[in-house]
Design a protein around this nucleic acid. Sequence first.
DNA 1: GAAACTGATACTCCCGAGGCATCACAGGCA
DNA 2: TGCCTGTGATGCCTCGGGAGTATCAGTTTC
Lengths: 300, 300
Amino acid sequence: MPREYQFPFELRHLVYFREVARRLHFREAAEALGVAQPALSRQVAQLEAALGANLLNRTRRRVELTPAGKLLLERAEPLLRSLHAIPRELRATAGGEVGHLRVAFTGLAMATVLPGILREFHRKHPGIKLELNESPTSSQLVALEAGELACGFFHPDAPTPALATRTLLHEKNGVLLPAGHPRAKARVLRLRDLADTPFVLFPRAHNPGFYDRVLAAFAAAGVAPRIAEEVWPRANATGLVRAGVGATFMTPSEAQPLPPEVVFRPLTGPAPESRLVIGWRASPPPEPALAAFLAVASRT
Amino acid sequence: MPREYQFPFELRHLVYFREVARRLHFREAAEALGVAQPALSRQVAQLEAALGANLLNRTRRRVELTPAGKLLLERAEPLLRSLHAIPRELRATAGGEVGHLRVAFTGLAMATVLPGILREFHRKHPGIKLELNESPTSSQLVALEAGELACGFFHPDAPTPALATRTLLHEKNGVLLPAGHPRAKARVLRLRDLADTPFVLFPRAHNPGFYDRVLAAFAAAGVAPRIAEEVWPRANATGLVRAGVGATFMTPSEAQPLPPEVVFRPLTGPAPESRLVIGWRASPPPEPALAAFLAVASRT
DNA sequence: GAAACTGATACTCCCGAGGCATCACAGGCA
DNA sequence: TGCCTGTGATGCCTCGGGAGTATCAGTTTC
């Protein structure tokens, strides 16, 4: 709370009041606004207090606007519309690239953190448009350094000196098996239990470092892996498992919720680990739009 | 934070940005807004993030508007002016009595809680005008029941069934003595130490119950009081004490800061207690303007 | 090149908006 | 007339985020 200066009300109050004034029904307005009814009641009451005027006559059964309420609604409507239009106007006028972010991601990101981040980001920054592309780690690294991407969600293997990164997820992989697989009954598996099972992987070129570590995990378990397919994008791997083609690696959070006809089993002993990071060019410092996206992503 | 809906920015952001944009100087703008400079920096950065545009070019030594910043300033100025005008407009149109409160108070209130309450209230509710009158408890009770006052700060003696009250202060009185008084050296006094000291009181009619309890305290101490003067308003009592006319009762918080040429001493043993309350008609329920005032008063 | 000035950052505190549970009251129906 | 349903208000608690203090980092100036 600012110490000296403070508007008598906030935009929230006007938005809430407008909704109630239009519908003349607190519960419905609250639902439309996505808040609980008590919060709405309180905010409207606060607005009335701040303005020192009764805006609504509430009999227990009906809500109606007072003259003051009518006047406020008349004034608030165009103001809110103008305010709402500001982000769009700015985007039209400003540097062109401003308010527009190209973001790449891998299948794991979309299966875990990305939906929540997108939801939160659009709520907070409706003025910024995102261009989202699923794309393998290797391509992302190239595109990031070339300045073609604002940021990317990927799985780093070696250090990336030109990029700043932040880890979002770091999990040991388990395996996703067809429900009918002979070892599907076991609660926990070791990699060597799956010596005969064909695996669905991703094309090595997409992340050679991680691919090689997967092979190393097999080697450590004393198993020669059978690679049935290499498939991309990631979501298709699940389909192949369901089809009985083989097993695939998957992190616990990625396996939630579990698709039908498959089972997920953690691995004990050697197993590949997946680290999901968000990365962006370390310099120059991020533009406001990117800074906003990073802030949301880092905290969701 | 509303779960679903949220404006990309708040009025605060626009107000802060406007100030910076006008002055092109963060520190000065912060001072003008009455906030610390870091808070201002953060809020402006937030606004830029929310809009996805750089609004200001900050070289380390100079701040200047970008084209987007210029546009936003153009848009924001009239909107903020319109918003600012809303409370005044409503007050002009609404029921007449709305947005206007008659408030009475006693000297003790003004010497303790009232200044803080007024400051806070005007900050939060600039649309509501107050009409303030110092007035004794007895007159306030009459005026309140007659509906001539919205609320009053007074010292109740007997229950007041038609009024709702809230205690703001409840303190045992000490005494205020001229600095040259023979007992002024003592750290603590008893009422009977002051048998020969003339007292400055208030006219009995202003609060007969309390007046009589003062006399009762003297009686309990085995002292026949000497009443030198009865004076009103309260602030004048201090003047009389300074002039050496006599002593007067005063609560510790009222005696802070201590006026020159006088000393304050707590009393042990029997001593009158002062209770300051805010009171208002219990029914009908308070109008928004009064509700706002009560909310501020109850919590300050 | 040391000092001064400016805006950004790190950390902590605390207000207040929101959610949940519940209340109080008005109509509707039997 | 009494139970039931629907509505807005209230009490209590949680927690996000805005603000303050202290400090940093980069320019400019003498």
